[in-house]
Write a protein that binds this DNA or RNA. Structure first.
Lengths: 208, 208
DNA sequence: ATACCAAGAGAACAAATAAAGAACAAGTAT
DNA sequence: ATACTTGTTCTTTATTTGTTCTCTTGGTAT
């Protein structure tokens, strides 16, 4: 078997990622648009090379889609467990969480998530800047409705506005404390504050 | 076999790191941009020297990139088929980079890396705290030896101490500027400062 | 100064690879 | 049946990549 060209490896990589997020294999057109191609014809040659390399099932005309072989799946063992974490929306201090219309999935390393159910929000604004969480950062939130004192939580206040703050809970009072020391802690009755999750990870891109 | 020039060693170093991040070797153009060259022709001479030294496979006039030989691969502890970005060590302002004895690999999302050769360092200390990079954070570094002014770079000063700082380069002076405004910019002669990579991503865990 | 050498920029070229688009066939949906 | 989607094949055109040359610069030895 001859070596794969770089393009062919890119396609293989896409197919491996795709099968982690979808149960059906992608059609040629879907692979095209994922790779920025505008002609199925161009792609097909690469797929044919992958078939000859035994990495893609030869098509049977009725089972549509570009389907990987068992051999290909064994090629990359370490991608196995990374099911993506859903990116669900934006959080700006003082506003409700703004959900994205189309949820996308980002495969994140286990170091910055827990093995519980997690989701991803993107930060708008500088309300957490002293905690090292900047405008545009992504935060990984473990979905749960209780927190320990001192954890950073996504809190929904009066069912209207969301915020990311340190929490301190006492029998008759819940405090939400911004990292920014210019702002002071806010006091609420426990029933006003609904915990939507706990901060477990964060990431940031420096690429323009 | 004659000794390698400094430039040739840089190239070799780049190739060794690159093979940890990709399954395919880099093209001449990619090596050029990592080393800050603007002409393939110039690079090609060095590559030819590496071929003669038996460290790079002679090309077969196919577009297969700059491929290391078995001999060259044995220069570093072998990595095999790993997928992911290598975690190579710790960086503390003012000290050399402390390499881990056993390199591990972390699959990180494409949002916080580039499609070039990248590696991961873990931060020790608070020297970048105003840039939102804390003690214990991981940073993703794109491996290259040139930077644009204003980028955050891993710089090796006088071949002895590493640091993560904003860089400003002028014809006869290189400035390294800490984010922490309590510290002032440091001035160096250009030849004192060796750029080892550029910051492209960051991540943090809040899990104890 | 003169000669020499390593490095790099840029132009030019050929081989390999990739892409677009047309055309058509086999299945699917209406 | 008819239209639509999906996979396949083909030809033509464009882009990428490796290679070789020439020219320039800056440093070093003679």
């Amino acid at each position: 078997m001859r070596d794969l060209t770089r393009k062919q490896q890119n396609i293989l990589e896409f197919l491996l990622t795709h099968q982690n997020n979808f149960t059906y294999p992608p059609t040629l057109d879907e692979v095209c648009s994922a790779l920025g191609l505008s002609s199925r014809g161009s792609l097909h040659k690469h797929v044919k090379a992958l078939i000859e390399a035994g990495l893609v099932e030869p098509s049977e005309r009725k089972q549509k889609g570009v389907r990987l072989t068992e051999k290909a799946r064994q090629l990359v063992p370490s991608v196995g467990e990374t099911v993506g974490t859903p990116f669900v929306g934006y959080i700006a201090a003082g506003k409700p969480i703004e959900a994205v219309t189309q949820v996308s999935y980002i495969a994140i390393p286990e170091q910055i998530k827990t093995d519980k159910s997690c989701y991803i929000l993107q930060i708008k604004g500088d309300s957490m800047i002293e905690e090292g969480i900047f405008d545009g950062d992504w935060v990984i939130i473990e979905q749960r409705s209780v927190a320990r004192n001192g954890e950073i939580v996504v809190a929904l206040i009066d069912k209207a506005e969301a915020t990311l703050k340190f929490i301190e809970q006492y029998p008759h009072e819940t405090l939400l404390i911004p990292a920014n020391s210019n702002m002071s802690a806010m006091k609420f009755k426990p029933e006003q504050v609904e915990i939507q999750g706990v901060l477990v990870g964060q990431m940031r891109s420096y690429i323009k």
